[in-house]
């Protein structure tokens, strides 16, 4: 039986490699590359990596090219934290033995995969609704809002050793993500992923802008991270 599945898989990956290259081949083994977004928690729990079918609306191309060659962990507790925790002395802690590393690509592969990813833009409609006002926010003000007034630190790191662990680290967010995507996702995570672990905190427009500016400030400070 296993052999049959293997042959089928081989046949499948051969066909997809011919059609969509590496993206629809090996990437699709762990990422949702075709959409639609996950509609049930059962499938959300099994996710191995972020959805890529809207990568062109989400990521910065230059970051993709560099990260794919030297991939580092962005989500301290993996894609779904529940699959990577164990009971520790002080409560739940990350079970690092269950986390797997992303494969590294050659420069040529990283460049071509990133170019393919950037073509995937099914959510231009959501992006078009966003307008990022130019501006900055003093780091301390942003941090105050992030931690004390908005509570984002519950789930996100704003520096390598400060913040929550179930969500993706945010001190590299603006390096990774397009500003309109950040504001759109903060505005309504469920518009992108109905089963997102991120709640809609009903932020005002002013606060959304503030957070995007704060994330940009943070990423500039952490120029060497990821």
């Amino acid at each position: 039986m296993k052999r049959i599945i293997f042959v089928v898989l081989l046949g499948f990956s051969g066909a997809t490699l011919a059609e969509g290259g590496m993206l629809q081949g090996s990437c699709a083994a762990c990422h949702n590359t075709k959409g639609p977004a996950t509609q049930t928690l059962k499938t959300a729990f099994e996710k191995k990596g972020p959805d890529l079918f809207y990568a062109g609306n989400k990521y910065r191309q230059e970051w993709l090219v560099s990260w794919l060659q030297k991939p580092g962990r962005i989500r301290p507790a993996g894609m779904y934290y529940g699959g990577h925790i164990k009971a520790g002395a002080k409560g739940d802690e990350i079970d690092a033995s269950t986390l797997t590393d992303h494969i590294a690509l050659s420069k040529a592969d990283a460049t071509s995969v990133a170019a393919e990813l950037m073509k995937m833009k099914p959510h231009d409609d959501l992006i078009a609704k966003e307008k990022i006002e130019p501006g900055t926010i003093p780091k301390q003000m942003g941090e105050m809002a992030f931690t004390k007034f908005l509570g984002c630190m519950a789930c996100h790191l704003i520096e390598p050793e400060y913040g929550g662990l179930s969500g993706p680290e945010l001190y590299t967010a603006a390096k990774r993500l397009q500003p309109q995507y950040m504001s759109s996702f903060i505005r309504s995570p469920q518009a992108w992923e109905p089963k997102s672990m991120m709640p809609n905190k009903n932020l005002s427009e002013v606060n959304i802008q503030k957070m995007v500016h704060y994330l940009e400030t943070l990423s500039k400070e952490n120029a060497n991270a990821n």
Partner: peptide
């Protein structure tokens, strides 16, 4: 499991991975 455990812990005692 999806939304509460991250802070309230896998056994519900308030000792989640985020605290």
């Amino acid at each position: 499991k999806a939304y509460c455990v991250q802070c309230h812990g896998s056994d519900g005692t308030g000792k989640g991975v985020n605290v």
